[in-house]
Computed example of a mutant assay.
Amino acid sequence: MATKPSLNNEWQAFWLAVGFLTRIPMLAQINYSQRLMNKSSLYFPLVGLLLGIIYVVAFTLFSLVASPLVAIVLVLIAHLFITGAFHEDGLADSIDALGGGYTVKKRLEIMKDSRIGTYGTVALVMALLLKVALLMEVEHIWLALLAAPAISRLTPLLLMATLPYVTDPDKSKSKPVPDEFSNARLTIAAAFVLILSATLSFWHPLLIIGTLPAVLLVALCWGAYLRGQLGGHTGDALGASVVFSELVLLMFL
């Protein structure tokens, strides 16, 4: 009798993750709670895979009428629209704060500012340009578009599990995710990413090799920097980690 409520909770958690990370309409009635939001983090890589499938379909269609470069740019535009530039916004805010603040308090204040500064603008433009350039160099563009969104969304889960949350919880839209983060669900998410990576390595052997650096290397380096500069992580810093992980993975590919 307990199985049905449990499955229903997981179904809601999945769609809550979809609604949190994207603009895709949630096809389920959500009984929102902080506990359910905590559980939804398990599905971040799965939401990434869903996005990857959308990007592959879009790239295939765009390639029928445009060059690979134009198709990639159009896919990137679609990505920014579907996700609301969620992680890119986190990158810009993080770099603005870490580049312009001289104390932890000031950095956190800058990070909460909705305006974008020079550091954030430069970081955002360079990240998008590098992503386009790397995708143009990849042997199988469709494979990169499919795998990168899923693999990169494991990195923020590692940061949530290993670093304290430092933003004022009453002012953060990301507050519910880090609270009471489950290491057991992190293990499941990591297993999903590794299985996906191993399966897709049939087309590109370096994918499984690049997965660990893309996740672990970024989590270690970015996490150590955040601990030193902020004392922990913020929602914006988690978003930035996704962008960094995608770029590292694409470099390997």
Rank of each mutant, 00 (worst) to 15 (best):
L154E: 05
L154Y: 04
T121E: 09
F44N: 01
L207Q: 05
S152L: 02
G99R: 02
L108P: 00
L134A: 08
Y55K: 04
V56Y: 02
V125S: 14
S197R: 06
Q34F: 11
T167A: 15
V132T: 08
W11R: 08
T3H: 13
I208K: 06
S245I: 00
I151W: 00
A97D: 01
Y43S: 04
L42D: 07
N38C: 14
K131E: 13
N8F: 14
F181D: 00
C221Y: 08
M136A: 15
I24G: 03
Y225G: 06
I54G: 01
L108F: 12
L42T: 04
Y165L: 10
V243F: 06
V104K: 10
A198Q: 09
T199L: 15
Y43E: 10
L64S: 05
S63Q: 13
L158R: 06
Y55F: 13
L200S: 05
P149F: 02
S152C: 07
A224V: 11
W11E: 06
S172V: 07
L212V: 14
M37H: 08
Q29G: 12
L145D: 09
L143E: 04
A198G: 06
V215Q: 01
K39G: 01
L16G: 05
A147P: 03
A190D: 08
I110H: 00
F59D: 03
S245M: 04
L247C: 06
F202L: 14
F252I: 13
S67E: 11
A144R: 04
H79Y: 11
L230H: 04
S182A: 10
L206E: 12
Y225N: 11
A144V: 06
Y119S: 01
R23S: 10
L154F: 05
L216N: 03
R153K: 12
S33I: 02
L51Q: 02
I30P: 00
S40I: 05
E137I: 05
L212H: 09
S63N: 13
G223L: 09
V125P: 07
E109P: 09
K4F: 14
G232S: 10
T22N: 05
Y102G: 00
H233R: 09
I95W: 06
V243M: 11
W203A: 14
D179K: 15
H204W: 11
A148W: 00
T234Q: 10
V193I: 11
A85K: 01
V243E: 01
L146C: 07
V75T: 07
S172E: 09
K112T: 07
L135M: 15
V18R: 03
L216S: 08
A123M: 02
A189Q: 08
L146E: 08
R227Q: 12
N38P: 04
T3W: 15
P176T: 11
W222S: 01
S152G: 07
G90T: 03
L21S: 05
L226A: 05
R35N: 12
A28L: 08
V242D: 02
L124N: 02
G117Q: 03
Y32H: 12
S67C: 14
H140M: 13
T103G: 06
D89W: 01
Y32R: 12
M1P: 07
A198C: 10
R227S: 08
T199P: 03
A240C: 08
L220W: 15
F192K: 07
V193R: 02
I208Y: 10
Y165M: 11
I72P: 00
I110F: 04
V104L: 09
